[in-house]
C-alpha cells in the first residue's frame, strides 16, 4: 500500500530522524528498524511487559502501543540517550552497582521507567515505587535490586544536587 506510506520526522534523543513508514508501523519497530535504535526491546507487542517503555514528552509510554505516525512532533527519549559521551548516568551506574540486571533484556524499559520516576517524583515512597515498577516484567532478577538501584540513583542525584 504505497499510497499509505507516511513521511515522518521523529525527534529521538534530541535528534531528527526522517523516515518513511506505513501507518501500521509501531513506534517500537520504527525506532528499531528504521532509526537503528535497537536498545528499545520488544517483549510482548501487546503492552504488558514494558520492555519497550520510552519517554514521550517526558511521560513513560509503551512504544509497542503507539504508531510511529502518532509520535511525530513529540520528543521521544530512549535508552540510547541516557549515557552522555559514553559515561553512564547515575541511574545506569546504580543498576550496575546494585546488580539490577542479569540478561539485560528488560533493562532499557526499566531504565526509562526509572528515569520518568526520578524526574517526576524523586522522593517517591516505597509503596508508590513498587506500584510504579509493577508495570514492567523482569524474568531474571526477582526485582529487589531494580528497586534498590532506582532508590540509590535518587539518593545519589539528590546528593549531587545538594553539593
Amino acid at each position: 500500500m504505497s499510497d499509505a506510506m507516511h513521511d515522518l520526522t521523529l525527534t529521538l534523543n534530541g535528534q531528527a530522524h526522517a523516515i518513511r513508514v506505513e501507518a501500521r508501523r509501531t513506534l517500537a519497530d520504527a525506532l528499531r528498524e528504521d532509526c537503528g535504535l535497537t536498545g528499545t526491546h520488544l517483549g510482548c507487542e501487546h503492552g504488558v511487559c514494558g520492555a519497550c517503555t520510552v519517554l514521550m514528552d517526558g511521560q513513560p509510554v509503551r512504544a509497542c502501543l503507539l504508531f510511529a505516525v502518532q509520535a511525530e512532533g513529540r520528543a521521544i527519549r530512549t535508552v540510547e540517550g541516557l549515557a552522555k559521551g559514553g559515561a553512564l548516568n547515575p541511574l545506569q551506574r546504580a543498576f550496575a552497582e546494585n546488580h539490577a540486571l542479569q540478561c539485560g533484556y528488560c533493562t532499557p524499559g526499566f531504565l526509562m521507567l526509572g528515569t520518568a520516576i526520578l524526574e517526576t517524583d524523586p522522593g517517591i515512597s516505597d509503596e508508590a515505587l513498587v506500584e510504579a515498577l509493577s508495570s514492567n516484567l523482569c524474568r531474571c532478577t526477582g526485582y529487589a535490586n531494580i528497586a534498590r538501584a532506582i532508590r540509590a540513583a535518587a539518593d545519589a542525584m539528590s546528593t549531587e544536587g545538594a553539593a
Partner: peptide, 12 residues
C-alpha cells in the same frame, strides 16, 4: 485511577 493498569498505560 490508582487501580487502573500501570503508569505507562495511564499516561496514554
Amino acid at each position: 485511577r490508582g487501580q487502573i493498569a500501570h503508569l505507562p498505560i495511564r499516561t496514554r
